[in-house]
Structure formats: C-alpha cells, structure tokens
C-alpha cells in the first residue's frame, strides 16, 4: 500500500509535466487546427537548449527560461515556415498530421549529429527530500509542481480575462467571423504558437529535470502521454487536458508501482484506446472546446 502512496506522489510530478505539455499541445490544435506530432521533438530540442546553458555552469532553474524561449521561437518558425504554407494551400488535417510526423523525424535526425546519440542529464541539486507519509518528493520536484500550478493559473487567466486570450478563443470558435470583427487572426495564431511553444519548452526542460537522463529518442516517449491526456480531456480543451494530465500522470505512476515501470507507456496507450472506444469526444470536449475555456 505504501508503494502505491509513494507512486501517487511521483504521479503528482508526472501529472504536472504532462499538464504543462498537454495544455500547449491541445491549444495548438484548438486554435490552429493542427495536430502537431513534432511537439515531443520540440520539447526535447528545448530540453537540449536548456542543457547547453546548464552545461556552461548556469543553474537549471535559470536555464529553464532559455528552454521556454527556444520552444517558443522554434514552434513559431515551424508554423510560419512549414505548417502555415501547407494549411494555406488547403492541406487537410490528416495531411498536416503526416507533415508534422515528417517534421518530427527531421528534427530528430538533424539533432542526432549535433547532440549525439547518448543520454545526458542536467547538473542539478535535487534539494532536500520532503516526506508526507509514504510520499517522498525532492525540493526540485515540488518546484516542478509549483511551476505547473503557476502555468495552469496563467493559462486560465490568459483565456478568461485577457483580450488576447478571448481573441484566441474567438479565433478557435470561428476564424472567419473573428476576422469580420477586426481580430487580426494571423497575429493571434502567431502568438498562440509562441505561447504554446513556450509551454512546450518549459515542459521539455522540467521533463528532463525529472528524468535521470534524456536523449533525442525521449521525444517520442514524451508525446504518448501528452496525446493521451489531450484526448482524454477532449481535443482542443485546455481544462480537459489538465484533467487528462491528472488521470494519465497518476495512472501511469501507480501502474508502474503495481505492474512494472516498463509498462507506463502501455498504460497511457491503453487509457487512450479505452477513451476512444467509450467517449471519443473526451471528458470535457464539445464543439469549440477551446473557445469555451472562459
């Protein structure tokens, strides 16, 4: 029993990382109608950007914003240079998914000769370990949970209270009508890629912090729970993605304690398949899920 409680504690960290990344992933879909399978690879590229700074002697916490900025700029450029031109030509959703898969492979294969095949890990001090019953979390893990809480609150505030957030929701709901209202949807989409890219960068860096090590191959491992959480919550719904992250984060960690850590990804996939069968629209999804996120 204590093992499961301890796993629940690790689940809090996993759900935090998945939440940050899944919210970014699902917002990209909600606003730009783009299922970006290169998301995991951008996460890992951002993690390496933070690693480069960290490896030069800078604290990983100071390197975290570097990962965020890298993810933001990388995602923005991906959209501007690759995705948007295809979308303008009328490439359909499935076509865009295949293009993003190709982009993912290109990023991975371009990164390999630059960063190498071997795993790396951040130079970090995990800090004091805090205990609550059988739950044991390091200071760094608690800080990751705090980062996730701050990010979730910031996303809520953005979508609920700000002009930009409401314009994002309007663009997600009805882009043509948004343009008729005078909303510069192209700029809104650019900003959406920057913001979701920053989330991707933060998620990649904290995922690297929570791992013993990471490599180029970690990108695809990151992607599975992200997609599972996004679909579980309802594609395009940021609040749904948060709930999906809680469920996937806890289920994968607890299943690791009960079955084996090697089956984490299997559990995430099994949950994904189960949801697709029982409730294909996800837990919170309805039409315009992102637009309803007020």
């Amino acid at each position: 029993m204590s093992l499961i409680v301890a796993a629940f504690g690790f689940g809090l960290v996993s759900m935090s990382i998945i939440a940050i990344s899944a919210v970014g992933f699902t917002m990209q879909f909600g606003i730009t109608n783009m299922i970006n399978l290169a998301y995991g690879q951008v996460m890992i590229a951002s993690a390496y950007a933070a690693y480069a700074v960290n490896n030069a002697g800078v604290s990983i916490w100071l390197a975290l914003p570097v990962g965020a900025v890298f993810g933001a700029v990388f995602s923005f450029l991906l959209n501007r240079l690759i995705y948007a031109p295809f979308q303008r030509k009328g490439t359909n959703l499935i076509g865009m998914v295949i293009i993003s898969l190709a982009v993912s492979l290109v990023i991975a294969n371009v990164m390999l000769p630059i960063v190498g095949y071997y795993s790396v890990s951040y130079h970090q001090n995990p800090g004091t370990t805090y205990h609550l019953g059988s739950i044991a979390l390091t200071g760094a893990q608690l800080a990751i949970i705090a980062v996730a809480v701050v990010v979730m609150l910031a996303i809520y505030a953005l979508l609920r209270f700000t002009r930009l957030g409401k314009a994002m929701r309007a663009t997600a709901a009805n882009p043509t009508l948004a343009r008729n209202c005078g909303i510069p949807t192209a700029r809104v989409v650019d900003l959406a890629w920057l913001i979701t890219g920053a989330l991707c960068g933060v998620a990649g860096t904290v995922a690297g912090m929570n791992s013993d090590s990471f490599s180029v191959a970690s990108g695809s491992e990151f992607l599975i729970p992200i997609i599972a959480a996004s679909i579980l919550g309802g594609a395009g719904s940021p609040y749904g993605a948060m709930i999906g992250a809680v469920l996937i984060g806890e289920m994968t960690e607890i299943s690791a304690a009960i079955i084996s850590p090697e089956y984490k990804q299997v559990v995430a996939f099994a949950v994904l398949v189960l949801v697709m069968v029982l409730r294909p629209q996800g837990l919170l999804a309805k039409r315009g899920a992102l637009a309803a996120a007020g």
Partner: peptide
Amino acid sequence: QDIFEPMTVLENLEMGGY
C-alpha cells in the same frame, strides 16, 4: 455561424468591439 457560440453574450459583444 454569425456568433461565437461557445462564448458568452458579453464576450461576443467584446469581440465585436475588439
């Protein structure tokens, strides 16, 4: 598709005055 359906009436008006 003449309104932003998932948004509130007030938010629709706010978007109209963007």
